[in-house]
């Protein structure tokens, strides 16, 4: 009887995904999956699926990261400056910036014991300040030939590689299991010989480095770094995981499929609203409402753990 109950709960996110597909197919008369929209849809899915499939490494620990959207913007800006020296330099520059910020977040959380919510919120403002300084002229263009690097093929390969890696690491290695253990019970984790600080730092580094990489992908797509780069990145990822059935407090019930199913749902929702012609401001409002609704429905209030 218990097993049946569990399964029903597991299928809710899939039902939600199907519902979104059907709904947006109907209201856009199929345009959302039409040839003209396909590359936009893939691009939307690209960012959201990748961000949620790395965010899972810290959300499963019960943490949030509010800084990663700002990291995308900063690494895009730094990448654009590096590209002015040598286009190839943009890749390591972007990734290293993200990695460094992730490391700083991790240290503040693990060593100085500041709650992640506070750390990453402060980091977000700090980085936004730096990015605005770097892009004082309103944006930084990259050499034109870099735009040729961008292709749907590259994106598909990247998403497949990153998702496969994320799936294996999260489900079948010690790191993934440790993340869930920290989310389940930190005291237990420490007493079981887990280096809890190290797991926290690793989680933030993964999220930061991939946000850095996404900064690079965004400059080769748009040809410039702007202060708008990375907008909504972290919120989309958070809502995606929640839509995918992940508890906001993390823990043992976190599964990698939460990121995949939720990422797809969020991509279709996000892109579907644009294709349907919903006003951009109203889109934001809808995101906010969905965020609250998903938590209101899924948050286990018996779980005393405060969101960190």
């Amino acid at each position: 009887m218990d097993r049946i109950k569990l399964n029903v709960k597991d299928y809710v996110p899939y039902a939600g995904l199907i519902l979104l597909v059907v709904f947006f197919t109907l209201v856009t008369s199929g345009d959302i999956f039409g040839e003209r929209n396909l590359s936009t849809l893939i691009n939307e899915a690209f960012m959201i699926a990748i961000s949620s499939s790395v965010l899972i490494f810290i959300m499963s620990q019960g943490f949030l990261d509010l800084s990663s959207g700002a990291v995308v913007a900063l690494s895009a800006a730094v990448g654009a400056y590096a590209a002015a020296v040598n286009p190839w330099l943009a890749i390591p520059a972007s990734v290293l910036v993200g990695l460094a910020v992730g490391f700083a977040n991790g240290i503040a959380v693990a060593k100085f014991k500041v709650p992640p919510f506070i750390v990453t919120l402060a980091m977000r403002f700090l980085i936004m300040g730096v990015t605005t300084q770097l892009l004082a002229d309103g944006g930084k263009r990259v050499p034109f030939k870099m735009l040729n690097w961008n292709s749907t093929g590259l994106r598909v390969v990247t998403i497949v590689v990153l998702l496969a890696a994320g799936y294996i690491v999260f489900e079948y290695t010690k790191l993934g299991k440790m993340c869930r253990a920290v989310g389940a019970n930190e005291v237990m984790a420490r007493q079981s010989g887990i280096n809890v600080g190290c797991i926290k730092i690793t989680g933030f580094i993964i999220v930061g480095a991939v946000a850095g990489l996404m900064g690079f992908y965004s400059i080769i797509r748009t040809g410039a770094a702007t202060t708008q780069t990375g907008l909504n990145y972290e919120f989309n990822a958070m809502i995606a995981l929640l839509l995918g059935g992940m508890p906001i407090t993390g823990g043992p019930s976190s599964r990698f499929r939460n990121a995949v199913v939720g990422g797809l749902s969020m991509a279709i929702l996000s892109n579907g609203m644009s294709v349907w012609g919903v006003n951009i401001d109203i889109q934001q409002a809808i995101r906010g409402i969905i965020f609250i609704l998903v938590i209101a429905v899924t948050f286990n209030r018996k779980n005393i753990a405060v969101i960190k």
Binding site: I168, Y172, T173, K174, K177, R180, A181, A184, N185, V187, M188, A189, Q191, S192, G193, I194, G251, P252, S253, N303
Partner: peptide
């Protein structure tokens, strides 16, 4: 409940938590 166990996890996860180093082949745990 507070120190020894992950109450929301399965018996399997709780028993294996201290033995992943022993269980893994390469880096993978089946």
């Amino acid at each position: 409940d507070r120190e020894a166990l992950m109450t929301t996890a399965s018996i399997k996860d709780n028993i294996c938590i201290t033995s992943y180093d022993k269980l893994k082949k390469g880096i993978f745990i089946s």
